[in-house]
Design a protein around this nucleic acid. Structure first.
Length: 339
DNA sequence: TGTGAGTCAATAGC
DNA sequence: GCTATTGACTCACA
């Protein structure tokens, strides 16, 4: 179909430099695993740079148009659960930020889109699932009378109260990488398990980082192929929509920001050193030559936030950077560095 | 041992 | 019944 053709064309990115060892010719369809004798890992390794945004956009379209759910698609095509699919489709990372494993679902999506009959096949599966479900439902009435109810001891999910989240966010602003002692203190103050606090910090850092990738794409500064593909989806904050002065979710996604905020998180370690960032620094949006430090320490000038909030953001950002500098310098006593 | 990446799976919300 | 959110987990790596 023309839709599939357009994905083939648009989701693969031309090599950045003609001299660069090219990954593959643009527009070349990926070989099909099985048919080509290649495993999916080999296919990922050989895959040209794909535009994850275009691919997910197309997948969303196809699923919606054909009334196919994320669960069925995820379980049968990607080997992932519904939640993971939702996450991937809503917040695709740019190709160059993905590990080989992370690229796998996108290669699978691309392959799936390449074959027009795949949609039909999935719709058939859906019909078959429905049939099987109806059959089970029919017979389950009699079964339930003979079988004792299953006693499964599910682990209760921890749900943090809004106040607890607020407190953790405030702690994050002070120290994105809290010491074990701080974690202990937080846990006892909030009456949470230390593992919950540790997990929260892991997840929060990780999700903030991901939000920043998306913002990067939206600003058109990521050097990612997605940049050329257009605007990323909604771009809501990593843990909801709160706009509380933390480093995430403080900017309207539609705004254009000429300067890079440079969160200073781990992902800037490689920025400016990889070919991906080469294109990033070269930038298409007038990202000027403030240099790596400038972009690390600056925030967008057009941000509509209070100066107090800006200070908070900067403090969190700087603490993050300091933590990494200390780590790199092998220092044990971080407090001397704090402001 | 701490961290990031990727994912699962419970559950909230529509 | 669907998707989105998010705490918890596994794994690889330094």
């Amino acid at each position: 179909s023309s839709a599939e053709e357009s994905v083939k064309r648009s989701s693969q990115v031309p090599p950045r430099e003609p001299s660069e060892p090219s990954e593959s010719q643009p527009g070349t369809p990926l070989p099909v695993p099985g048919h080509s004798g290649l495993s999916i890992q080999e296919m990922v390794a050989m895959s040209p740079e794909l535009d994850t945004y275009v691919i997910t956009k197309k997948v969303k379209e196809v699923l919606t148009d054909n009334n196919l759910g994320q669960r069925l698609f995820g379980e049968t095509i990607l080997g992932l659960t519904q939640g993971s699919v939702s996450d991937l489709l809503a917040r695709p990372k740019p190709w160059h930020k993905l590990s080989l494993k992370g690229r796998e679902p996108f290669v699978r999506m691309q392959l799936w889109l390449q074959e027009p009959r795949n949609v039909e096949k999935l719709m058939d599966m859906k019909r078959m699932e429905k049939k099987a479900y109806m059959k089970r439902r029919h017979s389950s009435v009699s079964e339930s009378q003979t079988q004792p109810p299953q006693q499964h001891l599910k682990k209760a999910r921890v749900v943090l109260a809004p106040e607890e989240k607020e407190a953790l966010k405030r702690a994050y602003q002070q120290k994105p990488y809290p010491s074990p002692k701080t974690i202990e203190e937080l846990a006892s103050q909030l009456n949470l398990k230390t593992s919950t606090v540790i997990n929260w910090f892991h997840n929060y850092r990780s999700r903030i980082r991901r939000e920043l990738f998306i913002e990067e794409i939206q600003r058109g500064e990521g050097g990612s192929p997605s940049t050329r593909a257009g605007k990323a989806s909604e771009g809501d904050s990593c843990d909801g929509t709160e706009s509380d002065g933390t480093v995430e979710g403080t900017r309207p996604s539609h705004e254009h920001h000429p300067a890079s905020e440079g969160e200073g998180g781990s992902d800037h370690r490689d920025e400016g050193t990889t070919s991906a960032t080469g294109s990033n620094a070269a930038g298409t949006s007038g990202h000027h030559k403030g240099g790596a430090l400038d972009s690390l320490f600056s925030f967008p000038e057009s941000t509509h936030i209070s100066s107090a909030s800006l200070r908070k953001k900067k403090a969190a950002n700087l603490n993050n950077i300091i933590h990494r500098l200390e780590k790199a310098a092998g220092k044990d006593e971080p407090h001397e560095w704090e402001f």
